Amino acid sequence: MSDDLEAPNCAALRRMCRVATNAALATIATGHKQVEDGWPVTSMVVPGTDIDGSPILLISDLADHTRHIAADNRVSMLFGPSANGTSATIETDTARLSVFGRAVRNDDAALRACYLRSHPDAAQYADFADFGFYRVDVDAIYWVGGFGKQRRLPGSQFIEADCHPLVLGHDDIIGHMNTDHANAISHIVSNHSDYDPDAGWLMHSIDCDGMVLSSHDTDSPPIRIDFPKPIHNPGEAREILVKMCKKWRG
């Protein structure tokens, strides 16, 4: 089986991580009560995704996988098709993405905020003494989209580089759009999704590949709208949002 020319681009592959509600995490056993050291052990985790596409974990020191990571931080994560994807997603019933990397403890406030934006309920235990945030520094990825469809990439190609300015400017972008351009957001929803544009949408978060919008309407779940190309800083964010609005204005 060879790399398929129709395999999705990196933004679409990162999207599989961004919309995932869970993932399988594989670690290397150390001091496990049931298997010898070096045995591969899998568990289920609730992942987040950093602005550049790097997976984020919030895990407890009491868990086997965290003790394994402390001894050997090499991990693999398996992401499958999402049940809440939109028509823009590339997932099929059999598509899956394996991410290989090293899980590194990271107490940066921006990383914490990024995870909690996706999983606000986790704030109830994120400050417990035994919990910590980990960023997975990606070494490689492997995507399989069905028979005869695959793609292998190094982490340096999968992860979008030079996104730190977007991390620093994230909150200012959100505040500016919601305060001054809520009307533009509703028109972007109208033009780039099948959702009701009059549901009172506000920008919840933004990353290199797109944005998540939330609504005051409790019957409308958060939605994701992807950008036509990756962005890296507030200036590029403004440029791409203006273009999306101009497309609506015709």
Results as ranks from 00 to 15, higher is better:
residue 174 I to Y: 07
residue 113 A to N: 10
residue 212 V to G: 07
residue 2 S to K: 14
residue 122 A to W: 07
residue 77 M to N: 04
residue 52 D to S: 07
residue 108 D to F: 00
residue 228 P to R: 10
residue 13 L to P: 06
residue 121 D to S: 11
residue 14 R to T: 04
residue 75 V to I: 13
residue 126 A to G: 09
residue 23 A to N: 03
residue 52 D to N: 13
residue 138 V to W: 03
residue 47 P to G: 06
residue 197 P to D: 00
residue 204 H to W: 02
residue 74 R to N: 15
residue 117 R to S: 13
residue 67 R to F: 10
residue 50 D to H: 10
residue 244 M to T: 08
residue 170 H to I: 08
residue 93 D to M: 13
residue 188 I to T: 01
residue 241 L to W: 10
residue 49 T to R: 05
residue 82 S to V: 07
residue 127 D to F: 06
residue 92 T to S: 15
residue 243 K to M: 13
residue 47 P to A: 13
residue 138 V to L: 03
residue 191 N to C: 05
residue 119 H to L: 10
residue 19 V to H: 00
residue 137 D to N: 14
residue 20 A to R: 01
residue 70 A to D: 09
residue 97 L to T: 04
residue 190 S to W: 07
residue 194 D to P: 00
residue 196 D to I: 12
residue 176 H to V: 04
residue 177 M to G: 00
residue 218 T to N: 14
residue 113 A to S: 14
residue 103 A to M: 12
residue 90 I to V: 15
residue 26 A to N: 02
residue 181 H to V: 10
residue 22 N to I: 11
residue 161 A to H: 11
residue 199 A to Y: 10
residue 39 W to L: 08
residue 219 D to N: 14
residue 171 D to K: 14
residue 204 H to G: 11
residue 78 L to N: 13
residue 78 L to S: 09
residue 126 A to K: 01
residue 49 T to N: 05
residue 112 R to G: 04
residue 175 G to L: 05
residue 185 I to H: 00
residue 15 R to H: 15
residue 85 G to Q: 08
residue 244 M to L: 15
residue 5 L to P: 10
residue 246 K to Q: 15
residue 43 S to M: 01
residue 213 L to I: 09
residue 53 G to R: 03
residue 27 T to G: 07
residue 119 H to D: 03
residue 34 Q to N: 09
residue 29 A to E: 01
residue 131 F to I: 14
residue 81 P to L: 12
residue 198 D to N: 14
residue 231 I to S: 09
residue 72 D to P: 05
residue 92 T to M: 11
residue 143 W to I: 08
residue 12 A to G: 02
residue 66 T to W: 06
residue 224 R to C: 05
residue 214 S to F: 01
residue 9 N to R: 08
residue 199 A to L: 09
residue 163 C to M: 11
residue 155 G to N: 01
residue 139 D to N: 06
residue 50 D to S: 07
residue 196 D to E: 03
residue 7 A to I: 02
residue 85 G to K: 08
residue 130 D to C: 05
residue 22 N to L: 13
residue 248 W to N: 07
residue 138 V to T: 00
residue 196 D to H: 11
residue 28 I to M: 08
residue 48 G to T: 12
residue 223 I to T: 06
residue 160 E to R: 06
residue 85 G to E: 15
residue 116 L to Q: 06
residue 53 G to V: 05
residue 77 M to H: 02
residue 145 G to Q: 09
residue 98 S to D: 06
residue 48 G to Y: 01
residue 19 V to T: 07
residue 22 N to Q: 15
residue 45 V to S: 14
residue 31 G to T: 10
residue 110 A to R: 12
residue 86 T to M: 02
residue 45 V to G: 03
residue 37 D to W: 02
residue 88 A to P: 00
residue 103 A to C: 11
residue 39 W to V: 08
residue 232 H to P: 01
residue 182 A to N: 01
residue 231 I to N: 07
residue 211 M to A: 11
residue 156 S to I: 03
residue 34 Q to E: 07
residue 60 S to V: 00
residue 235 G to S: 14
residue 29 A to C: 08
residue 61 D to W: 01
residue 38 G to W: 07
residue 92 T to C: 13
residue 91 E to W: 12
residue 118 S to H: 09
residue 83 A to K: 08
residue 219 D to R: 15
residue 22 N to R: 11
residue 236 E to P: 09
residue 94 T to W: 10
residue 202 L to Q: 15
residue 19 V to D: 05
residue 36 E to V: 15
residue 4 D to M: 00
residue 10 C to I: 08
residue 185 I to D: 02
residue 190 S to K: 04
residue 133 F to Q: 03
residue 142 Y to G: 05
residue 186 S to H: 01
residue 243 K to V: 11
residue 248 W to V: 03
residue 74 R to P: 11
